[in-house]
């Protein structure tokens, strides 16, 4: 029998010639701060036409992987590198915190008025599959005046490995011993329940169009999509709405980052701290042999810590607390 080709795919390869410039730097990594990074690199290039930084938002894990393989000049990640990951890199990378962000719990419950309030125990319960109806007594107790429907909860999570998932599961591991022992914290975990969607936009889209669903996304995505998000009970037992202020408060109140600027600030103490907050980092090699490249990168870092910070609030990121920025600046001298 003669088979007929129905669709013959035409492969077109576009060869984009890189613009000629004195210093072209390649970076890749986290998607969450990508809008801000694109703005930064664009602005920086306008001010310094000889330096062009190309950033590819391929995800935190991808950034770490490419940095380890040595295919990029620097990486970016929402998740600090583990000791094991650091050991695998030939030239030890330095962690440079850039801004702060928050992961918010978005939901879609038709007929529910006011803001949903959730305790760490109920969030862990929902994601462990133990709380599976909106009318569960635990949720009711936290929202006495809300009319909660007797409907099953559609739990939405990420299907791809993600820094957002890392921050969220890191938080759940801190507040729930059961989560810590059964699931743990990672950019990709073995989820006990729920359905996965790719990317922050995938989760946001699914929650938006599915009644009785719950999910977690970066603050920026929830704000852009005008979604309703829950207020959370923090470590001090106070109910806090996610905002730039409550994220900054969490950074100020947490015990701080380690000496090498790694570390997590989830479940921070303090009455106004939003519990699912995080730093996001640039991963810069500590040795850059090419002097021109080294100067371009260190100059950019100094600019980012001063002028660059002013761009953050406009895009729903919280700038670094002043003392942290000052400390990070000292680290620039370590790049040799």
């Amino acid at each position: 029998m003669k088979m007929k080709f129905l669709a013959s795919p035409v492969l077109l390869s576009f060869l984009l010639a890189a613009p000629v410039s004195a210093q072209s730097i390649n970076a890749a990594g986290a998607t969450f701060p990508a809008p801000l990074y694109q703005k930064w690199f664009g602005e920086y290039r306008a001010a310094h036409p000889s330096v062009s930084i190309n950033y590819q938002a391929i995800g935190s894990g991808g950034g770490i992987k490419q940095l380890t393989d040595g295919t990029i000049d620097f990486g970016a990640s929402d998740k600090p590198m583990s000791d094991q990951e650091l050991a695998a890199v030939k030239v030890k990378p330095l962690h440079f915190p850039t801004v702060l962000g928050a992961v918010v719990i978005v939901y879609n419950v038709p007929g529910l008025k006011g803001t949903l309030q959730l305790s760490p125990a109920s969030i862990a319960g929902i994601y462990l599959g133990q709380i599976n109806k909106w009318s569960d007594p635990k949720i009711k107790a936290e929202n006495p005046s809300a009319s909660l429907p007797d409907k099953p909860i559609l739990v939405v999570r990420r299907s791809d490995g993600s820094g957002t998932s890392f921050v969220f599961t890191d938080y759940l591991s801190q507040v729930s011993p059961e989560w810590k022992s059964k699931v743990g914290a990672n950019s990709m975990v073995s989820w006990p329940t729920g359905l996965g969607q790719k990317g922050n936009d995938g989760v946001a889209g699914m929650v938006k169009q599915s009644p009785y669903s719950i999910g977690y996304v970066e603050l920026l995505y929830a704000a852009q999509n005008k979604m309703t998000f829950a207020s959370l009970k923090n470590a001090d037992g106070k109910v806090v709405t996610p905002s730039l202020e409550s994220v900054t408060a969490a950074a100020a109140a947490s015990k701080g980052l380690d000496k090498d600027f790694r570390g997590s600030i989830v479940n921070a103490p303090g009455p106004t701290s939003y519990p699912i907050s995080t730093y996001t980092w640039l991963l810069i090699p500590s040795r850059i042999p090419d002097a021109g490249k080294r100067k371009a990168i260190t100059d950019f870092l100094a600019w980012m810590l001063k002028d660059g910070q002013k761009d953050a609030p406009g895009l729903s990121y919280a700038p670094l607390p002043k003392p942290v920025a000052a400390q990070v600046e000292k680290q620039i001298a370590l790049i040799k």
Partner: peptide
């Protein structure tokens, strides 16, 4: 498709 890019 979902997990390969982030499989570190």
């Amino acid at each position: 498709a979902n997990e390969f890019t982030e499989a570190s």
